[in-house]
């Protein structure tokens, strides 16, 4: 069997700063992952539906507008409501460290702030996949 890690890279909310999301998408690809890129202005509902249809192992979201405490938990809640319990959810962007605990309690496995080497994120994902 030829198991590839599939990862959804999405930007929830309205901010258009996709430099980080796009750099990460490339880094994931260069690490051998299959990256489904959904682009800007995604609602939590759209992200979850895409995650299901694409059968991804990971949902990676980036947000720089400050709406993370609202939008990230919406995604994890909707995933749970759909019975999806084997998808790893991670986040990135400009997110105050004070919010990390709250987001973790809502099911976001890790937050990667500005300046995080791409390898750190990749290593975390590889070590924490829920589906083997």
């Amino acid at each position: 069997m030829d198991r590839k890690i599939r990862i959804l890279v999405a930007k929830p909310g309205l901010d258009g700063h996709d430099r980080g999301a796009k750099v990460m998408a490339r880094a994931f690809r260069d690490d051998g992952m299959e990256v489904v890129y959904t682009g800007l202005r995604q609602t939590p509902e759209q992200i979850v539906q895409a995650a299901i249809q694409e059968d991804v192992d990971v949902v990676a979201m980036s947000i720089l507008s400050g709406a993370h405490n609202h939008l990230f938990p919406r995604v994890t809640e909707l995933l749970a409501a759909k019975g999806v319990d084997d998808v790893l959810v991670v986040g990135g962007g400009v997110i105050p460290e004070d919010d990390y605990e709250f987001l973790k309690s809502k099911g976001v496995a890790a937050i990667f702030g500005p300046g995080t080497p791409t390898k750190t994120t990749i290593d975390f994902i590889r070590a924490n996949l829920k589906r083997k």
Binding site: G13, L14, D15, R41, T43, S65, A67, N69, H70, L71
Partner: peptide, 17 residues
């Protein structure tokens, strides 16, 4: 951002922004 993208504050996409 809602103002920059032409959505009123009560638009669905404005939530959290």
């Amino acid at each position: 951002l809602p103002t920059q993208i032409g959505y009123d504050s009560d638009h669905a996409l404005s939530q959290g922004e």
